[in-house]
């Protein structure tokens, strides 16, 4: 229930983000027992690199505090959509926070917005949308995969945001959204987004709205832009956004001054060349941020467009 609003202490049923280190973050649901592989209920014990955690012991703890485990400790963090994106169970490829951030801003989402999303996938973007449009908005999310749609719906209600979302099993490309003039924004992450454009137009309010299509391949973008133009969308913008992370380092570099003669070597009449070829000064400390050696180089192209308001015959 912990996604709906911030709270101070962990309660039964909450999703807690267990932070061990930057590469080891997990989302766990606080229950007394879990089903094991054989289908029997067993005490909920979560195994980590720092040892085991009796999950029910988290109850009553303050969010943000340290959790002692057998071989170390972790932090119990309050979930946010961004932390969820880092830890959620992947059922599909997901959108990550750099792209999600742009989608939220470019679709002009805010409390009260009504949004259509296809497909639901693993619900990474959905959680961010829900956080942004609650408590007065609504998300209609669709997936053509029955199980994915059901699991997402279960997650939404387990996370306490079920009231703000309708998750449906439906093939939007073939059948449309089954919604007429209700949405402020439409988000498409589909293999053939261009087929869904006319349905998106129908789902958007008569007063107009924004649309976004996420596609990994440029061929899809090409066809989607053609389709958007054909259906009267304006302000087309296709972009790509990558996040560059810097490793922050304090590094020490030795400093040489070649213009000065060596300090030793020649003085004692030794014929061998000096080990110190040049004047060495005190090493200098450098504070720097270096880019990661590898980074995600492509996620997808984001295409945004505006649907202008429908002209009424009166004007």
């Amino acid at each position: 229930m912990s996604f709906k609003e911030y709270k101070t202490h962990v309660e039964m049923g909450d999703t807690v983000i267990l932070y061990l280190n930057i590469k080891n973050i997990h989302a766990i649901t606080v229950t007394e027992e879990v089903k094991n592989k054989k289908g029997n209920m067993v005490p909920n014990i979560f195994q980590t690199v720092y040892g085991a955690l009796k999950v029910k012991d988290l109850v009553g703890m303050k969010y943000g505090s340290q959790v002692q485990m057998t071989r170390g400790w972790a932090f119990a963090l309050h979930p946010t959509p961004e932390l969820w994106t880092l830890t959620l169970p992947h059922r599909t490829q997901i959108l990550y926070t750099p792209d999600i951030s742009i989608v939220l801003t470019q679709l002009e989402l805010r409390p009260g917005s009504v949004v259509c999303e296809a497909g639901t996938g693993s619900g990474s973007l959905s959680h961010a949308i829900l956080r942004t449009i609650a408590p007065t908005g609504h998300l209609h999310t669709f997936d053509f995969h029955e199980q994915r749609s059901r699991l997402a719906a279960e997650e939404f209600s387990a996370h306490g945001v079920g009231d703000y979302v309708t998750a449906r099993h439906r093939d939007v490309c073939g059948e449309g959204f089954d919604l007429d003039s209700v949405a402020d924004a439409v988000f498409l992450d589909l293999p053939r987004p261009y087929d869904a454009v006319p349905f998106a137009k129908q789902a958007l309010k008569k007063s107009g709205g924004r649309i976004c299509s996420f596609s990994p391949c440029i061929e899809q973008v090409q066809k989607t832009c053609d389709s958007l133009r054909k259906h009267g969308f304006t302000e087309l913008q296709t972009l790509e956004c990558l996040q560059r992370e810097f490793q922050v380092r304090k590094s020490v570099m030795s400093v040489f001054d070649l213009s000065q003669p060596p300090t030793d070597g020649s003085a004692d009449g030794d014929e061998r060349p000096s080990k110190k070829a040049a004047m060495e000064e005190r090493p200098r400390e450098v504070l720097t941020g270096i880019p990661l050696t590898t980074m995600p180089g492509h996620t997808g192209f984001l295409t945004f467009a505006t649907l202008p308001p429908v002209m009424t015959s009166a004007t």
């Binding site: 973008v221 087309l236 810097f246 922050v248 304090k250």
Partner: peptide, 28 residues
């Protein structure tokens, strides 16, 4: 921000990240 990074590390903060985003527009 690099200075802030170390200052916040000293304060015990976690998940510290210094990033920038790279934005490229396309003619389609």
């Amino acid at each position: 921000l690099l200075e802030c990074y170390f200052a916040m590390k000293a304060e015990g903060c976690i998940m510290l990240k210094v990033t920038e985003t790279w934005l490229r527009n396309y003619q389609v």
